[in-house]
Amino acid sequence: MYHVSKAYAAGSFALRDISLELRRGEFVFLTGPSGAGKTSLLKLLFSAEEPTEGQIVVLGRNIVRLGPAAIPRLRRRIGVVFQDFKLLPRRTVEENVALSLEVVGTPPRVTRAKVFAMLKQLGLQHRRYHHPLSLSGGEQQRVAIARALVNEPEILLADEPTGNLDPDLTLEIMGLIASAATRGTTVVVATHELDLVSRYGKRIVRLDAGCVLDDTPAPGDGA
């Protein structure tokens, strides 16, 4: 799906000569200690950072040479759950989730329906007129997940999506993310919770100090 091989730096290397390939609809955990470069790797995938070296192919396009008009088009096909959520404080939960539909010009009625369904799935429908700052960390995280999933993206990049959730909610949210993968969405979940990773029996890529430590394919998968 994308062939990744790059080094990224601001003087020192955050990622060193990484090569990875993901198939469409694959579910991959990206793990490693803090500072291993998980977030950096995800940022490269939706063109929030440019690689210092190497080429990245996402959805059939080499995104290293992408022009300024093509980057937004790429991002509209990728849902991202940011580690720090990146919600707009002055807009309601509903408006925040609607954002990823509005940028592609979805009619308001469709947007409202989709946003409501999404929030309901995440147990947030009663919060839809609240502002993000009045929500708990776990609730904000779910809003971020809702925004990433509502547009049915072809790729989902989730950076610590369960970091602020209790075990029950973690289970539920991971189920939601996994079901996106079964519908054909390529999913990358970055996390340092190792027990979470081991529980799901998916492909695991372990990063450390910017290098791939090992790449364990999902059990019963020939890849």
């Binding site: 509209r76 707009l88 954002l99 990823s100």
Partner: peptide, 16 residues
């Protein structure tokens, strides 16, 4: 600025 940054991250073009 934050708002603009977030909008671009979810795929808004400059014009948008």
């Amino acid at each position: 600025r934050d708002e603009i940054e977030i909008l671009t991250l979810v795929g808004a073009s400059r014009t948008f």
